[in-house]
């Protein structure tokens, strides 16, 4: 049952991602991105990372996607003209080159994934035998909070500074220039 639901989420994510990259209408593609993000959040829940799933919903679906739609609405004039003219060459590289690169990369990645599954790293085996894997009943939010404030304090501060820099930079870039 659990596996079936997992396959459902995975199929939804991959299927709508494929539809997304093959779709001409960008507004529809962005709304399909919604579905991809929701199903990937479902996959996080299956990996027992409920807090990450909630963060994904809050930040990606609530923030990033609205930003993307906003930018699309502000810059879609050229796209409308293009659709009206009916351009013949819609893709930057010929499609088959991009497809070839993507498919061969997929083959390499799946080969690696199957190898990792066949002989798993020593630390995973040790964790399995010691029984220290995360269990469905664990209170992950509390553990993450403690770890962020102790073990990962330096990365946390670096990320906060970088986030502030990015916000200031974005505000500076979109500001109107007074005099040329």
């Amino acid at each position: 049952m659990e596996t079936l639901v997992f396959y459902g989420f995975a199929a939804m994510a991959i299927g709508s991602a494929i539809l997304l990259v093959s779709m001409r209408n960008i507004a529809r593609a962005l709304f399909l991105f919604f579905i991809v993000l929701f199903s990937v959040a479902g996959l996080y829940v299956f990996a027992l990372a409920d807090f990450i799933a909630i963060t994904q919903l809050l930040i990606y679906v609530g923030g990033v996607l609205v930003l993307l739609l906003f930018a699309f609405m502000l810059s879609n004039k050229e796209l409308l003209n293009q659709l009206q003219r009916g351009v013949s060459h819609f893709f930057a590289m010929p499609v088959w080159q991009a497809l070839l690169i993507a498919v061969s990369f997929l083959a390499i990645l799946i080969h690696t994934a199957i190898q990792v599954g066949a002989d798993e790293p020593a630390w995973i085996t040790a964790s399995k035998t010691a029984g220290t894997t995360i269990q469905p009943g664990d209170n992950t939010v509390q553990h993450i909070g403690v770890q962020v404030m102790t073990q990962y304090l330096l990365p946390f501060e670096v990320v906060s500074i970088l986030l502030m820099m990015a916000l200031i930079g974005a505000a500076h870039l979109t500001r109107k220039e007074e005099t040329p």
Binding site: F6, A10, A13, I14, A17, I18, L20, V21, V36, V40, L43, A47, F91, A92, M93, V95, Q97, A98, L99, I101, A102, V103, F105, L106, L109, I110, T112, A113, I114, V116, G117
Partner: peptide, 20 residues
Amino acid sequence: THFLVVGACLFSIGLYAVLA
């Protein structure tokens, strides 16, 4: 392995979007 394969598929689709 299930998660790794799903991740690989999503990554390749993203790569295709960036290239094409």
